[in-house]
Simulated scan of single mutants.
Amino acid sequence: MHGPASPGWLLVALCAATGTYCLLRMRSSVEEQRGAAGGEALMGFGMAAMAVPAAVFSPPGWVWPVYAVVFGAAGLRALWAARTGRHHLHHVVGAAAMVYMAMVMAASPAHGHAHGASGTPVLTGVLLLYFTGYVLLTGVRLIPVVAGGGAGAGGRAAAGWGDRPELARACRLSMAIGMLAMLLPL
């Protein structure tokens, strides 16, 4: 570690890389992949921007309400999409967490990046429990299962790299880990 800004920059890099990969997944030939990837790209880049260390850039006060509106709209879109698939509910929770963090930042005296900010302990705890559970469950799902017989890598070659479900899961896992890192200081 090279001072307190290092973890913030690592989080920025993780979230920006995830957002970039999600943008690339939007070129998928699978409609469901494209729809989910757009919301995940927004989440990744929003988290990256929110995680920039305050010593480098402290955004003006009007930024936080804009974050709340943008992620509120993303949450409503995900809620609408949840009619067709349960997996969109995770996007609803993620967007709600981003709205919550933006509101906490807007209410903090210095409008800092969680320095001196204090959220509602119960809500922060519930979000921490949710994302911890999500990280553990998704991590277990990423553990490769040894296939018996002829199901090797040949079946996977037909899918494009942007359509591989394990990469999408790894993307969601990295964003959930990032969300945990952002919620802890609250």
Rank of each mutant, 00 (worst) to 15 (best):
Ala176Thr: 09
Thr138Ala: 13
Gly148His: 09
Val122Gly: 00
Ser118Glu: 06
Leu129Lys: 10
Val122Asp: 04
Val140Pro: 01
Tyr130Ser: 01
Gly160Phe: 10
Val140Asp: 06
Leu173Asp: 01
Ala153Lys: 07
Gly155Trp: 06
Val140Glu: 11
Tyr134Thr: 09
Val146Asn: 07
Arg141Ala: 15
Gly149Asn: 01
Arg169Trp: 02
Ala151Val: 13
Gly125Asp: 04
Thr132Phe: 10
Val146Trp: 10
Thr120Ala: 12
Gly139Tyr: 09
Pro144Trp: 01
Gly155His: 08
Val122Tyr: 02
Ala168Asp: 05
Ser174His: 04
Ala170Gln: 07
Val126Ser: 08
Ala158Ile: 15
Tyr130Arg: 03
Ala168Val: 09
Arg172Ala: 15
Ser118Asn: 04
Leu127Trp: 06
Pro121Asn: 03
Phe131Ser: 05
Arg172Glu: 15
Ala153Gly: 12
Arg156Ile: 00
Val135Gly: 04
Gly154Ile: 06
Gly139Leu: 11
Pro165Tyr: 09
Ala153Pro: 00
Val146Thr: 11
Ala170Glu: 03
Gly152Arg: 02
Val140Asn: 11
Leu123Asn: 00
Ala168Thr: 07
Gly160Cys: 07
Ala176Glu: 04
Gly150Cys: 08
Gly119Glu: 03
Ser174Ala: 15
Val140Tyr: 14
Val146Met: 08
Leu142Tyr: 10
Leu136Trp: 07
Ala170Lys: 05
Ala151Gln: 10
Gly149Lys: 02
Tyr130Phe: 15
Val126Leu: 13
Leu137Thr: 14
Met175Glu: 14
Leu136Pro: 03
Ala158Asn: 07
Tyr134Asp: 03
Ala153Asn: 06
Val146Gly: 03
Pro165Leu: 09
Glu166Pro: 01
Gly155Tyr: 07
Gly148Ile: 03
Ala176Val: 04
Gly148Arg: 12
Ala147Asn: 13
Arg172Trp: 06
Trp161Asn: 08
Gly152Thr: 08
Thr120Val: 05
Val126His: 02
Cys171Gln: 09
Gly162Asn: 14
Thr120Asn: 13
Gly150Glu: 14
